[in-house]
Amino acid sequence: MSSADLLLHPVRLRIVKTFLGDRALTTAQIAAELNDVPTPSLYRHIATLTRAGVLQVVAERQGRGSVEKTYALRLLAARLQPDEIDSMSLEDHTQAFMAYIAGLLGDFDRYLAHDPAPGHDGADYRVGALWLTDAEYADFLTDLTALLQSRLANKPTKNRRRRVAYHVLLPAPEH
């Protein structure tokens, strides 16, 4: 199975996203966050991601006749690899982007279902344009990566709320 087929499945993509923010989770914790996914389906997709090396078991605990496993995300395995991206057709890129956008729309719908007054908690969406040379764009990406990296190092605390960042950077078509 290609990385795209593995990662862009709607349920598997949601499972992967539950781990963002350097989280280690049990299947029960994942099920609590994805409570609209049937349990047998959730177990099947977790097993698929584990066999593929996207998730790894980081702890096991014996309890009541079964073993409870705690999983963590292998971040480098949870992305499309450059050679696979290079070999994708335009249609493949369109399908991948549609899966990305569908995931974003689903996340936003679930957010609205739990927070009918969006925005007061910092949720935001907007579009803007930057006029940049290729060198300035490279510097911008370096600066953005540095800013994000410093925040990605934050560990969970009772005062921190996990926030998922989406970003899309598209060059405007040349005339």
Score class of each variant (00 low, 15 high):
M1F: 13
S2D: 04
S2W: 11
A4E: 15
D5I: 10
L6K: 02
L6A: 07
L6E: 00
L8Q: 15
R14L: 07
R14T: 08
I15C: 11
I15H: 08
L20E: 12
L20Y: 03
D22S: 15
A28F: 08
A28S: 13
A31Y: 02
A31L: 11
L34R: 05
P40N: 01
L42K: 13
Y43E: 13
T48P: 01
L49Q: 07
T50P: 05
R51S: 12
G53R: 06
G53S: 01
G53N: 04
V54Y: 14
V54K: 09
L55T: 10
L55A: 14
V57Q: 11
A59E: 10
G65K: 05
G65P: 05
S66V: 06
S66C: 07
Y71N: 09
Y71I: 11
L76D: 09
A77I: 00
A77M: 02
A78T: 01
R79T: 12
Q81Y: 02
P82H: 04
D83P: 03
S87Y: 00
S87Q: 07
L90N: 11
A96S: 08
F97W: 08
F97P: 02
A99W: 01
A99C: 10
I101W: 00
I101D: 00
A102C: 07
A102Y: 01
D107P: 03
Y111D: 03
D115T: 15
D121W: 06
D124G: 03
R126E: 11
V127I: 11
A129N: 01
L132V: 06
T133C: 06
D134H: 13
Y137E: 08
F140T: 14
L141C: 11
D143G: 15
L144T: 06
S150R: 15
P156I: 04
N159L: 15
N159P: 09
R160V: 01
R162S: 12
R163G: 06
V168D: 09
P171W: 03
P173T: 03
P173E: 06
H175L: 00
